[in-house]
Measured scan of single mutants.
Amino acid sequence: MTEYKLVVVGAGGVGKSALTIQLIQNHFVDEYDPTIEDSYRKQVVIDGETCLLDILDTAGQEEYSAMRDQYMRTGEGFLCVFAINNTKSFEDIHHYREQIKRVKDSEDVPMVLVGNKCDLPSRTVDTKQAQDLARSYGIPFIETSAKTRQGVDDAFYTLVREIRKHKEKMSKDGKKKKKKSKTKCVIM
Rank of each mutant, 00 (worst) to 15 (best):
S39W: 02
P110I: 02
V45P: 02
G10N: 03
R68A: 15
V114S: 02
M111K: 03
C118D: 11
T87G: 09
I187T: 14
F141N: 05
T50M: 03
Y157C: 10
D30S: 09
V81D: 06
S39C: 12
S17F: 01
V186E: 15
K42A: 08
Y32I: 00
D119E: 08
V103E: 14
P34F: 13
K176G: 08
Y157E: 12
D38A: 01
G151S: 09
I36P: 00
G151K: 05
D173S: 11
E31S: 02
G60W: 04
A134R: 09
V125Q: 10
I84A: 14
H95D: 12
L19N: 11
G75W: 06
T74H: 15
Y40L: 02
Y137M: 14
T127K: 07
R68H: 15
L19G: 12
R73I: 07
K176C: 10
A66T: 12
P34Y: 02
G151R: 10
T58Y: 14
Q61R: 01
K178W: 04
Y71P: 12
R97Y: 15
V8H: 02
E31I: 03
G10Y: 02
D105I: 14
Y71D: 15
Y71C: 15
K184T: 09
Q150W: 08
Q43G: 01
D153S: 06
G77F: 14
R164T: 13
A11E: 15
V160M: 05
T35K: 00
K180R: 11
G60A: 02
K5F: 03
Y64Q: 06
D69K: 03
E37Y: 03
S122C: 11
C80Q: 05
V14T: 12
K169V: 05
T124G: 11
H27M: 10
D47Y: 05
Q22A: 06
T20V: 06
N85I: 12
A59V: 14
E49I: 04
K184V: 03
Y40D: 01
K169D: 08
A66L: 13
V152N: 09
C51D: 06
A18D: 01
T50I: 04
I100C: 09
R149Y: 13
G60R: 02
D119C: 06
D33T: 05
K167C: 12
S122N: 13
E49R: 08
V160G: 07
H27C: 10
A83P: 12
E63H: 03
K16A: 00
I55N: 05
K42Y: 03
D47W: 02
Y32F: 01
V81H: 14
V112M: 11
E162W: 06
L53H: 01
G13I: 11
D33R: 02
V109L: 07
Y64W: 15
D54N: 03
L79C: 10
F28L: 01
A155R: 04
Q43E: 02
V160C: 07
T35F: 00
L133D: 10
Q70H: 04
Y96A: 09
H27T: 07
R68F: 15
T58D: 00
Y71F: 10
A18N: 03
R73W: 07
T20E: 11
A66G: 09
G60L: 05
M170R: 15
F78C: 01
A66V: 15
A66Y: 04
Y157T: 11
F28H: 01
M111Q: 07
H27R: 13
M67P: 13
F28D: 00
N116T: 15
L6M: 12
K42G: 05
E37K: 02
Q43R: 04
F78P: 02
G75Y: 05
V109N: 05
F82H: 10
D108L: 06
D47F: 04
Y40W: 08
L6T: 04
V125D: 09
A18Y: 00
R73H: 07
D30C: 07
L6K: 03
L52C: 05
K184Q: 14
S122T: 13
D30W: 07
K101L: 09
K169N: 08
Q43H: 03
Q70V: 00
S106W: 13
T50Y: 02
E62K: 05
T58F: 15
Y64S: 15
R135N: 14
L52R: 07
G75L: 07
P121T: 13
D30P: 04
S39K: 00
G48S: 10
Q131S: 11
M111S: 01
K128Q: 11
G13L: 13
G10T: 02
E63S: 03
G174A: 06
T148S: 02
V186D: 13
R68I: 15
I36D: 00
N26D: 03
Q129W: 12
V81E: 14
D30Q: 04
V45N: 10
C51T: 06
L79T: 03
V8R: 02
T124Y: 11
Y4W: 02
M170V: 13
T58K: 01
V112Y: 05
V29Y: 04
Q131N: 10
L120P: 11
C118G: 10
V9N: 01
G115E: 08
G77N: 03
D108C: 08
G60N: 04
V125E: 11
I93T: 14
T124V: 10
K167M: 13
K177G: 12
K42V: 08
A66P: 07
D108S: 07
Q43F: 03
G174C: 05
G77L: 08
E31Q: 03
S106I: 10
Q150V: 09
T124Q: 11
S136F: 09
E37V: 01
D69H: 10
V81K: 03
I84N: 14
T35Y: 01
N26W: 15
S89G: 12
C51W: 09
P34H: 00
I139Y: 15
Q25V: 04
I36V: 00
G77V: 12
K179M: 09
I142H: 13
V186C: 13
N26Q: 11
T50R: 02
L6V: 10
T58C: 06
D47G: 06
T74W: 15
M67F: 02
M67T: 04
Q150C: 11
C185W: 04
M188I: 07
G174K: 15
T74C: 15
D57C: 00
F78Y: 06
V44T: 06
R123F: 07
V29T: 09
S39G: 15
D108N: 11
